[in-house]
Design a protein around this nucleic acid. Structure first.
Lengths: 226, 226
DNA sequence: GTTAGCCCTCACAGATTCCTCATAAACCCT
DNA sequence: AGGGTTTATGAGGAATCTGTGAGGGCTAAC
């Protein structure tokens, strides 16, 4: 997958470039806004990392033009550290995320990953966790190659858990998310977890849905134990 | 995350308080400068919203004292009017942003978000202290790369200590914070500290949780000795 | 009208966590 | 060192949380 980096400071550019290459991206660097925009429009990039302060055309404008052209490649903006306005702008502009300078490379990497992951789910509509595959377009679930029939509630519940893989969701959050804040008992969640487990988590030793006593539930890749 | 609001006008205070709560902040309100300062010094807040006109001690002074104490929590000042003096004062006095009264709640919210986004803990949801990593989103704890299962009480207690790294927390403050002011014995804290230590602080020579005899407990990076 | 499928609530058993008391250990001051 | 205070920890029961079967309401299909 190609990534476009628009950054005029060579030092920083090579640093970011290295980080992106580690993420197995093919990196193309533009050192000014105009070239960056041209590049973004002429090829299909999977990611654009865009500095705000740029010669010839600033980052906001580039971002804007990219969006105007109907391209919705994820864009990560690099904003100046102390400018509060930049952050507000960042939200309202078409950027998907932004990172204040100076930044830690690990943080850049984390954001890039998050963007790409989000995009992958968005694009393909598929969530894959171990041998569990959820196709959010077809609303179809399979585990271990075998397709599984879920009821609507079970399906929403599973998607909620899957979208938050590795994160503990409280019953409260689940109710908000899956039940849309309708008044329902905590136990309703318990109940549906049970039925979901019966369908999805039957194989001993490869459970995905875990109870975290006192907190809620989490969907986690089988890291060996449990 | 906790936010401290120092504002004497009840009407405005409850308005701001509501807005902050929407941002998922635990709001504590002080209605005069002295109490506000005390509070800011005694606990670790993620944000301080500070009115300028206050009984007992004005906002500038409070802000100043907070900075003098070496605390760099983001501070948002509410200035009475859009006077140039106030602006200059605000910049010099260590405030991170200011908002002239009267203000639109949405603007307050935007500023608050901007300030919080700067904060690493808030951004990543992670608290890292040496090899201890708490992920407050996933509600997950690991030490030395190994994940640790905590009970809800243990977890809250650890988070309370971690958010106040290097600061001594009295049992009283801990009870307030973790137990929500419910009547409980001091010894309850002792008890849970013990069980927390058993899970988190097992490695001799790299203890994080320290007893401060006569005061309480503190979580401190292992600066070499114990 | 009947049947089938889904969803929710109640009830209760089992599991886990939490708290208090009692006692031991550590600490501090004189 | 000794006495008083503070802290640590084991044990057991109280309190809370979780899993699951049973039953009834609801809707859609036949």
């Amino acid at each position: 997958m190609r990534a476009l980096l628009v950054e005029d400071d060579r030092e920083i550019a090579s640093q970011i470039s290295a980080a992106l290459k580690k993420e197995r991206l093919d990196v193309y660097v533009a050192d000014n806004g105009e070239d960056g925009l041209d590049e973004a429009l002429s090829r299909n990039y999977g990611l654009v990392v865009l500095d705000v302060m740029l010669p010839k055309m600033d980052g906001w404008e580039v971002c804007d033009e990219i969006r105007q052209a109907g391209i919705n490649t994820p864009i990560l903006m690099l904003t100046a550290r102390d400018s509060v306005d930049d952050r507000v702008k960042g939200l309202e502009g078409g950027a998907d995320d932004y990172l204040p300078k100076p930044f830690d490379v690990r943080e850049l990497t984390a954001r890039v990953r998050a963007l790409l992951r989000r995009d992958a789910v968005h694009r393909t509509g598929k969530i894959e966790i171990d041998d569990l595959i959820i196709d959010t377009n077809a609303k179809t679930v399979e585990r271990d190659g075998k397709s599984i029939r879920l009821t609507p509630r079970e399906y929403s519940l599973l998607v909620a858990l899957a979208r938050n893989e590795g994160r503990i969701l409280t019953r409260e959050v689940i109710l908000e998310d899956v039940w849309d804040n309708e008044e329902s008992l905590d136990n309703t969640v318990n109940f549906h977890i049970t039925s979901l487990r019966r369908k999805v988590d039957t194989v001993e030793g490869r459970k995905l849905i875990h109870t975290v006593h006192g907190f809620g539930y989490t969907l986690r890749r089988s890291g060996g134990n449990d």
